[in-house]
Design a protein around this nucleic acid. Structure first.
Lengths: 216, 216
DNA sequence: CCAGGTACGAGACGTTCCGTCTCGGTTCGG
DNA sequence: CCGAACCGAGACGGAACGTCTCGTACCTGG
């Protein structure tokens, strides 16, 4: 028999992930994002602690535990916010892959830009940490994929569909699989350090994927 | 001015990773492997602790710290040992990708077997943990890739070279890049849970990679 | 425009695990 | 056969966990 709180029973934590959102201190929220991103970049993900984030943000620990369930959760939101800010500062609208009519050239351009971005230390530390967390924790992994990864991949699906309409890609090809021929190799090389990445490398990937390995 | 030990100076820890190997207790070593693999499978990698491994193996903590530098290190060796045992129990010799003369069929067969293996819970938990650790810790990542991943990938390089000799793959293709067209997508789907994996999926990957996305 | 509720900063608390150290004992190599 | 080194066991201080309890400040509803 568990002891009960005297007056008003606490609702189960599973149904109370967030308290009253309207009363939330936005100033603290931003300070926590900044602290989390800064710490991950400075000392690395494993040495980044909730206590450290709270101290750096000038915030009580409870304020973090009230709104998030883990440090991975904090970092994911902080990173999404960072992306939203960057998008707002730039072109406002959501990104899309350019369509000049030349599929190979468009893909190469986007992948070259991706290579450059993957080398940006600001993005590197948090993305690695989030990806690693998602590999071990399936629950978190699905959230990571749904909110961060899949929206980006959808852009490739759209571009490949347009290429199919233009007759540059075979009609029976599944775009969701096709995009993996050049996206996944880059992702694996970067994530797992299996080999260096470069513009020449991604260019080669596009050529191989479009024209195949077998003689024509 | 640091205080010096009185008589015989301690060699720097960087040059003394292992004490006297010949006096090592092999019984304890195996018990630690077993405990590490069991705990990772049962409670997950984050909740697996050095203390827990030591207790389960009936071993002092110092025995672990004496021979390994981290729990990731323990698990990597345990997993390598598991693979070595499995290889010895089976065909003794090192693996190779079959060469029936039909490249597409050979690749599809190997990838189907890989899909099945990735679903084996015995292998899943440790591999995920090791991959995740390697993503965040570059030092460990390089060791993981060198000892576990790259040897497997080399088998694909060899098979693709044979296919080039047989005229089934264009001569100017770099096999180390080519293999990523079908291996990396499978790896990413499995690691990141971006989409389900199946035999049909890997078959499709091989077809796309060999014949390309563009109309022929 | 005021009153009450609720999030807030701060930090104490017990717990777990870290990595180091210190015991006897045991066992292996020279 | 003896001594050096590994061994199991566990004590130790430190760090971080996640929960909790203060008193304060702010914001929203009445």
């Amino acid at each position: 028999m568990a002891a009960q709180k005297s007056a008003h029973a606490q609702p189960p934590a599973s149904e109370r992930p967030h308290p009253d959102t309207s009363r939330r201190n936005q100033r603290s929220r931003r300070a926590i994002y900044d602290a989390a991103l800064a710490l991950v970049a400075e000392v690395g993900y494993p040495k980044t602690t909730i206590e450290g984030i709270a101290a750096r943000a000038g915030v009580g620990k409870q304020t973090i535990y009230r709104w998030w369930s883990s440090k991975a959760d904090v970092l994911l939101e902080a990173f999404l916010d960072l992306g939203a800010q960057a998008a707002q500062a730039a072109g406002q609208e959501t990104y899309a892959i350019p369509d000049t009519g030349d599929l190979a050239a468009d893909l190469k351009a986007v992948l070259r830009a991706t290579v450059d971005e993957l080398r940006d230390p600001t993005f590197e530390a948090p993305s690695r940490a989030l990806a690693a967390e998602g590999i071990v924790d399936e629950q978190f992994g699905r959230e990571f994929v749904a909110t961060l990864l899949e929206p980006s991949l959808q852009l490739y699906v759209d571009r490949l569909r347009a290429a199919q309409d233009a007759g540059q890609v075979r009609a029976e090809v599944d775009p969701r699989i096709a995009l993996e021929l050049f996206v996944s190799p880059l992702a694996q090389r970067w994530l797992q350090h299996t080999a260096p990445i470069s513009h020449a490398y991604t260019d080669t990937l596009v050529d191989y994927a479009l024209h195949g390995l077998a003689p024509r």
